[in-house]
Amino acid sequence: MALIWQYRFDLLVGLWWTLKLSMMSASLALVLSMFFGIARYSRNPAIRISASVYIEFFRGTSALAQLFWLFYVLPYMGVDLTPTQCAVLGLGLCFGAYGAEVVRACIEAVPKGQLDAAAALNFSWFQTMRIVVLPEALIMMMPLFTNLLIELIKATSLVSLITIPDLTFQAKAVITKSYSSGSVLLTTLAIYLVISLITSTVMKRIETSLSRGRIAEGVK
């Protein structure tokens, strides 16, 4: 433990980067999920198809390969991104694709009768989405988004491979400096675990407040 205390600042820097990258890529992923998940239901076939292509591509290729591509290949094409930009873009695009599938599935799970009711009331496509479909789909999405968010936080460890000093990167550095791996790895694991636990608690809170006053159909 004395060892951990000695290297606490290295690990705190790592924690800071992990949290920062998680936040940034999760925000990007959320926006992309919503946009492309809803776009799958657009009335415009071009929009629908672009959404499918995006989802299938980023879901079907590995996050690490995407990061390496952004980091090592893009510069040859004249696009120079900072490591942070690569990390946020790579993780955001990849988890945005997973998230879009969640959004799509939850939209699909809204009972068809409610779409009939919305159409009979003459709601437009946007109104149907905003007033009827999304509020309900959102409650169904929450537990699935929680999973994805935790997956994303853990996946940020990949950015250590593109020179970003996140928790995993720093842990490895400390191990190299101190010639001792056991307690450092254990501490690192514990930190990831605590982040996940806090994340799922906070998400559960949000979920509860979203469904307050009513029992969502098909969720509880």
Binding site: G113, Q114, D116, A117, A120, I131, P135, E136, R214
Partner: peptide
């Protein structure tokens, strides 16, 4: 035209 359905089809997220 207005329509009433067998399964009510109310919006559960609204009062």
């Amino acid at each position: 035209v207005g329509m009433v359905f067998q399964n009510f089809n109310l919006f559960p997220n609204l009062t």
